[in-house]
Amino acid sequence: MRVNLQLGKTIKTLRLSKGFNVTRLAAAAGISKSYLSSIETQRTNPSAHVLQKIAGALGVPVERLIYESVEPLDPEWTELLKQAKEMGIEKEDIRTFISYETWKNNGMAK
């Protein structure tokens, strides 16, 4: 995953894919048309707060704007992680399990 150096182009592409014109997205995000336009043409770098507003208006996570290749997590994985959390399984426990499985699989492959 790399930081998106073409943030404005990403926002414009997402805006167009949603069928929004500049006026509609700006209104939905609560920013001016001219400000949105300057972001899309990369004359202005938006604050984190403005990025949150734009992402919300586009219905995407902020990470989708910031990073070039963010793929959504498979819903089944999301559900498994949610269940693990509800059961009280800690992140470190999962990391330990993954480390063990990696070690076991590498050892068996030899």
Rank of each mutant, 00 (worst) to 15 (best):
R2N: 08
V3I: 15
V3H: 13
G8S: 01
T10P: 01
T10F: 00
I11Q: 00
K12I: 02
T13V: 08
L14Y: 08
L14W: 04
L14T: 06
R15Y: 04
R15K: 08
R15W: 02
S17C: 08
S17L: 09
S17R: 15
K18A: 10
K18M: 11
G19K: 11
F20N: 04
F20I: 00
N21P: 05
V22E: 10
V22L: 14
T23Y: 15
T23P: 01
R24Q: 14
R24G: 02
R24E: 13
A26F: 06
A26K: 02
A27K: 13
A27Q: 11
A27L: 13
A28N: 09
A29G: 06
G30I: 11
S32W: 07
K33I: 12
Y35C: 03
L36D: 02
S38M: 07
S38R: 03
S38W: 02
I39Q: 02
I39G: 02
I39E: 03
I39R: 01
E40F: 01
E40N: 05
T41K: 05
Q42W: 00
R43H: 06
R43G: 01
T44P: 00
T44M: 03
T44D: 04
T44Q: 05
N45V: 04
N45S: 10
N45L: 07
N45M: 07
N45K: 10
V50A: 07
L51M: 10
L51D: 01
Q52S: 10
K53H: 09
A55L: 04
A55Y: 01
A55C: 05
G56L: 03
A57D: 08
L58Y: 03
L58S: 08
L58F: 05
G59T: 14
G59L: 09
G59P: 08
V60C: 11
V62E: 11
R64A: 15
R64T: 15
R64Q: 15
L65H: 10
Y67H: 09
Y67Q: 05
Y67G: 02
E68Y: 01
V70G: 01
V70T: 08
E71G: 05
P72V: 15
P72Y: 15
L73H: 06
D74Y: 03
D74A: 08
E76A: 13
E76G: 03
E76D: 12
W77F: 14
W77V: 12
T78P: 01
T78R: 13
E79Y: 07
L80K: 15
L80I: 12
L80N: 12
L81Q: 08
L81V: 14
K82P: 02
Q83I: 11
Q83H: 12
A84M: 15
A84V: 05
K85S: 13
E86H: 06
E86P: 04
E86C: 05
M87Q: 14
I89G: 03
I89Q: 06
E90V: 04
E90I: 02
E92W: 10
E92C: 03
D93V: 10
D93F: 07
I94Q: 06
I94A: 06
R95K: 14
T96V: 09
F97D: 05
I98V: 15
I98Y: 01
S99C: 09
S99E: 15
S99Y: 10
Y100A: 01
Y100R: 02
T102K: 07
W103P: 03
W103V: 06
W103M: 10
N105R: 13
N105M: 07
N105P: 00
N106F: 11
G107V: 07
M108V: 04
A109L: 06
A109T: 03
K110T: 05
K110Q: 13
K110E: 12
